[in-house]
Design a protein around this nucleic acid. Structure first.
Lengths: 356, 356
DNA sequence: TTGACATATGAGACCGGTCTCAAATACGTT
DNA sequence: AACGTATTTGAGACCGGTCTCATATGTCAA
């Protein structure tokens, strides 16, 4: 009962000594490589069990050069969308015997850079990153240069030739916009959380996320196809969680030529829109139609339930991890871009625009 | 432009050689320990930059014995509650210069055990765990035995004398129940997702989570204080996501002496309750009053908005990480139990029971 | 000029595994 | 019995850092 918390952990040499064999033999048995006689195996295993031996993976990784660990840098784990993706990564990794080191960038490129450096320092075998910005990508190129595989999740980076798993954002936005147009809308707003001092959209130079850019293109393409002038007129940026969302949305809806429909870029923005509408006393879909990206659980229980673009977040994670692991273990052919399909789930938040 | 992906990464010896100093001196400069002349420092730093040196943290951890990494095993990252907690852990860790290795147990004790073993193998400096079961705890005792600090998050394990950060579940459940009783309810149901083949509550031996047990005690205490007979009568278990939730809730609500109020154990269960009620055509709070644990974002936008018990999930994570890190770096005094307060947020899902 | 002491530096052991290589032992065959 | 081959084993180098210790150099006072 005097078992003091042992300062020094039991090593393979301890086991070898206890089993009466050489360090090399003990290592072969415990590391499951090379050959060893049944007799030796038994002695070593017994000794290991008796001593409570547990391999030092650090030392193991050090000699083998592989850590069986993948690093993940994600924008915001609090967001269900990424939560699901991380779950997918986690499941795929576990199935292949890999562990996951997670870092949260808070959608901040500088933090992302730090996180990548740390993960590379820990000698992860590969990385999965949701790049926070298409403008600051030096650290991503560094990963490539280090020879370790990288898979981009959810977003791409122009000019960076690596594997990526994304959704068909452009098409999804186009289809959703078309749905609104078909319902009779001509003044359609796209609202995103993407950082920007200026909430008005003036061009691609403001947009740091590939997904957002694709969606904007989709919205504008659908608008132009329907002969709508200045389809970018109602695009709004920076409706993030910082309290600005409410103001931006309210300003948008209180102008004389207000939009009659909104396409919300993610479920956080959609919730913000929903709350602002309620505050302003506007009804959905009577006064305003709404479609949201991401089929968050709550969107089906509001009144009315919200029409959404369902994104396969879990699969996004799962597949990206599979691709990464395949590249770590296997052959390195040319970089691929996997595009997963989204699905428009029609509920009751879309109707004809009000007669103004 | 023929820069081939370098197989072998640049080591401290390479830097030393390039700088024209010994390995030891280069290590001193780059590792910020010992002494070195300004001249040597400059030469080494220049060489390091030129070669793109990046320390191998594995090797570093190996000799120092500390990895500056904490392991986190959580029930379900997809659940916003844990997402927030992980965010809190992540922030506190980063602030102290620690990294996080995350593992998802899926609320499965066997997976949790594996995860712990892997993390210990990776030589994390300490662990934060949300134990999936109070019955299988051998691996948690093993952590203690290994001498590495452990902090329990959200839940406790009887007989395991380690730090824990939890919420005041018992009190919260008691207060919520009292609120329902004060509104006139006598038949109050507590519904939890906790695994169980038998949905009927028969005793503590079925309950593998300390939080659930505390809440049940709270519910029963409030009931008994109000002179309600068999306050455990409407307790239901196993309403997890496996589709069983709907059946269990529907069965409960269709019996002749049905409950008039429900206390939902988490936001997933609450959502299930909400959907089932809608399917059965019952209204809140007209036919049934509802209070949910966890202030999930959607609870404020439903019709009616739901009265909830707000839990400080982020703080739970943040504080547990702080406590863990303090224990890793600092003095080891006696194990503490930190109890964070919850808050009842009154919205519109509670009213007097219908006259049946 | 010399001794005392601080500062700077290099050689080499060490952490705990893996892995190469050569020696030892076992086994089968003629 | 003798030889060829396969299997088992141990010694020791190695991975890339840290760290101890002894030596070299510099500074200052006497």
């Amino acid at each position: 009962m005097m078992k003091k918390a042992s300062k020094r952990l039991v090593t393979i040499s301890d086991v070898a000594q206890s089993a009466g064999v050489s360090k090399a033999t003990a290592a072969r048995v415990l590391g499951s490589y090379g050959t060893a006689s049944p007799d030796a195996k038994e002695k070593v295993r017994d000794a290991a069990k008796k001593l409570g031996y547990q391999a030092n993976e650090l030392a193991r990784s050090m000699t083998t050069g592989r850590s069986k660990t993948i690093g993940v840098v994600v924008g915001d784990i609090e967001n269900q969308y990424f939560g699901q993706a991380v779950r997918g990564i986690s499941d795929a990794a576990r199935a292949a015997g890999f562990d996951v080191i997670l870092a949260n960038s808070g959608e901040n490129a500088a933090k992302e850079k730090t996180a990548v450096r740390v993960l590379l320092g820990k000698r992860v075998d590969g990385l999965i990153v949701t790049p926070a910005s298409v403008f600051e990508t030096q650290h991503l190129h560094d990963i490539q240069r280090s020879g370790r595989p990288l898979v981009l999740l959810d977003r791409t980076v122009p000019g960076l030739d690596v594997d990526a798993v994304v959704t068909d954002d452009r098409h999804a936005a186009e289809a959703a916009t078309k749905t609104l147009i078909d319902a009779g809308h001509r003044r359609i707003s796209y609202i995103t959380a993407t950082e920007s001092e200026d909430p008005i959209y003036r061009g691609p130079h403001q947009i740091s996320l590939s997904t957002v850019m694709e969606r904007i293109e989709g919205v504008m393409a659908a608008g132009r196809a329907a002969g709508i002038e200045q389809p970018e007129r109602y695009i709004r940026l920076g409706a993030g969680r910082g309290g600005m969302g409410d103001k931006i949305i309210a300003d948008l809806l209180q102008q004389t030529q207000r939009p009659t429909a909104i396409l919300a870029s993610d479920n956080v923005v959609a919730l913000e829109v929903f709350k602002t509408l309620r505050r302003l006393g506007m009804s959905i879909p009577g006064d305003l139609s709404l479609i949201a990206f991401h089929d968050a659980d709550w969107t089906s229980v509001t009144s009315p339930p919200i029409t959404v673009i369902a994104q396969p977040a879990y699969d996004l994670g799962f597949e990206s991890a599979q691709i990464l692991i395949r590249r770590i273990t296997g052959t390195g052919d040319v970089a691929s871009r996997r595009v997963l399909a989204t699905k428009l789930i029609t509920r009751q938040s879309v109707a004809a625009p009000p007669k103004l």
